[in-house]
């Protein structure tokens, strides 16, 4: 008896669209009605290829003098004859075919419990959602309260936090839709947890950096830390969302997330910097002001500060020189 093979027609993303079982050779493929596998492809000839068994019982794909020929997935060179290996793809017209033979050994199944990271599994329980949502709302209200210096009006106090919550729910909703399209489950609560966590972390980061900047008089390094922190948080956000969507661990995922976050950070930085560097009237300084007990460094004397002031002349000169070009 001849060998049994499966011919699979793949879609653009590599998923199987149709699969047929064959145990008699040759198997003919083309757009004509007489073929064993009929392709709905305007670039396929009526009799395009035939899969035959040669004398060594190896499977060979032969081009039947078709218009557009046959190709392997790895080369752009037109072939007249391709020997079927365990897992190779063949392009016929614009259709990608995969020939599955008995030699093909599928990989072992991925155990379901490594699909999500341990951290995500721990934090995305139902209890954490009920804890995180009110906490996020609370932090958002608190930060509005903290930034309001007029008499508090409840609508003005609640509106921005409500908008923040709406944004979190919508953002998570978009990711949940992506999850649903990509896998069998939307993971909406998990996406909400991710968004809330990143929001909280960024709020805390900003506060801590403000106090750090004041305590050590280190506005510049605090700014850098804040910027790096926000970039890292963006990377985490994208990574966790994608990870939840894809339900599997891929080596390229952390790199891709980091790359996307860095790109976003670079665009933001460039647009901010480009806008401000041309402004001759803007005082480009940052100064954190907190209650005096938070200060941990010594103050300069007026004479010392005069020395720092004198040093600024050099950078003002070079700034004027650079901006002239």
């Amino acid at each position: 008896m001849d060998e049994v093979i499966f011919i699979e027609i793949l879609d653009k993303s590599g998923r199987v669209n149709a699969r047929s079982r064959h145990d008699h050779f040759p198997v003919t493929i083309g757009s004509a009605y007489t073929n064993d596998v009929i392709l709905e492809d305007e670039f396929a000839s009526p009799e395009h290829v035939a899969i035959e068994q040669n004398s060594d019982r190896a499977l060979v794909i032969n081009d039947l003098d078709s218009t557009n020929g046959i190709y392997t997935s790895t080369s752009v060179e037109r072939k007249t004859r391709i020997v079927v290996a365990a897992d190779n793809l063949v392009r016929v017209g614009h259709t990608t075919l995969r020939i599955r033979t008995a030699a093909f050994l599928p990989p072992a199944a991925i155990p379901e419990n490594v699909k999500a990271s341990v951290l995500l599994k721990t934090i995305s329980g139902r209890w954490s959602l009920f804890l995180l949502l009110p906490l996020t709302l609370g932090i958002a209200i608190w930060s509005v309260f903290w930034e309001t210096y007029t008499q508090i009006r409840i609508p003005a106090l609640l509106l921005p936090p409500m908008l923040v919550m709406a944004m979190i729910l919508i953002w998570s909703g978009i990711w949940a839709l992506a999850s649903r399209l990509y896998s069998h489950h939307s993971f909406y609560p998990r996406h909400i947890v991710i968004s809330c966590l990143v929001f909280l972390a960024s709020a805390i980061l900003e506060i801590l950096c403000g106090y750090y900047a004041f305590a050590f008089g280190a506005e510049l390094s605090a700014e850098i830390v804040t910027y790096a922190g926000f970039t890292a948080l963006t990377a985490c956000l994208i990574y966790w969302h994608l990870r939840t969507c894809m339900q599997s661990m891929s080596k390229t995922l952390p790199i891709a997330s980091g790359f996307i976050a860095c790109t976003i950070a670079a665009i933001v930085w460039l647009s901010l910097h480009a806008a401000s560097s041309n402004d001759n009237a803007r005082l480009q300084y940052n100064a954190a002001l907190k209650p005096l007990p938070f200060k941990l460094v010594d103050s300069a004397t007026v004479a010392d500060f005069a020395k720092s002031m004198a040093k600024i002349k050099t950078s003002a000169d070079s700034a004027a020189h650079d901006s002239g070009r």
């Binding site: 480009q284 100064a287 103050s299 004397t301 600024i312 700034a319």
Partner: peptide, 28 residues
């Protein structure tokens, strides 16, 4: 004129603690 360059420092004068920023820009 060119853009401003600034320096920021804690300064104390006779017990009064201050945060001082000094910015300078050069005429072209």
């Amino acid at each position: 004129v060119g853009p401003f360059s600034c320096t920021t420092e804690f300064v104390a004068n006779v017990g009064l603690e201050m945060k001082a920023v000094f910015c300078l820009r050069a005429y072209k």
